Amino acid sequence: MSIKVRTLGDKDFFSWLGLFEGYSEFYKSALTDEKALQVWSWIIDKNHVLAGAVAVNDEGDLIGFAHYREVPNTLSATRGLYLDDLFVVPESRSTGVGRALIEFAKQYATQHHLSTMAWITATDNEEAQRLYDDVATRTDWVTYEIEL
């Protein structure tokens, strides 16, 4: 199976939506039409910080996505790339799709002269962590969150 990764386009909405539903289900997050449309509008708005890419298989099916955005790195006075979301359909996991999406985001960061690329994942997402441990350095940072 060959994998092509490309930026998301206007015509990808319905295929992307199916992936985003799978992503939301994986993280046990209720997805409403309003949430999906809001995220989609961010991705396709060239003036918004959120961007996206999809992995496409030989049949032309979307089998994964990455959402990412540029962020400031204040301590180094540089800019980095934050990988907000990475999802691969279950039947395509462990086939190189996640790695290809990460590589695409890394190339984006390089082309835009960004200094770092970072992301988080759930502590129990061990399958993804095997890939992440292979392509990146696990940090000592602890994440906190306040819901408002």
Rank of each mutant, 00 (worst) to 15 (best):
T137C: 04
L50Y: 08
A36D: 05
L148W: 09
G96H: 04
L50W: 13
G60H: 13
L101N: 04
Q111D: 15
V89I: 06
T7A: 10
S2G: 08
Y27S: 07
S94A: 07
Q111H: 14
D45C: 05
T139L: 03
H48S: 07
T137K: 13
F87D: 02
K35L: 11
R79L: 14
I44M: 01
S76Q: 08
D140H: 14
D45F: 02
S41Y: 04
V56T: 11
Y23K: 09
S15V: 01
L75P: 11
V71S: 14
V135A: 03
E103P: 09
V97N: 05
K35V: 09
R6H: 08
V49A: 15
A100S: 13
V97H: 07
L75M: 13
D33M: 06
E147M: 11
R6Y: 10
A55V: 02
A100F: 03
T95R: 07
V5A: 05
E25H: 13
R79V: 08
T143L: 15
G52S: 14
A122F: 04
P72Q: 14
F65D: 00
F13V: 03
D85F: 03
L31E: 07
V89K: 06
A36Y: 02
K11Q: 11
F14N: 05
L75R: 13
G64Y: 02
N73I: 12
A30K: 10
T7E: 12
I63W: 08
E145Y: 10
Q107M: 12
G96C: 11
E127W: 00
Y82R: 09
Y132Q: 00
F87P: 01
L17F: 05
D58K: 07
K35A: 12
T121V: 01
Y144F: 10
F14S: 10
I44T: 05
T110R: 15
S92F: 15
M117E: 05
M1F: 13
L131S: 02
I63V: 07
L86N: 00
D84E: 13
N73Y: 15
K46R: 02
G22M: 07
A118C: 12
E34F: 12
V88N: 00
L17Y: 04
L86S: 02
L50I: 05
L86G: 01
N125S: 05
D12W: 05
E21G: 07
K28Y: 09
G60Y: 08
F13W: 11
G52A: 06
R99C: 01
K28H: 11
A118E: 05
W40L: 01
L17A: 12
Q107S: 08
V49D: 15
E127C: 00
G80L: 12
K11D: 10
A136G: 06
V39H: 10
G98M: 01
A105D: 05
Q107F: 11
K46G: 07
W141Y: 09
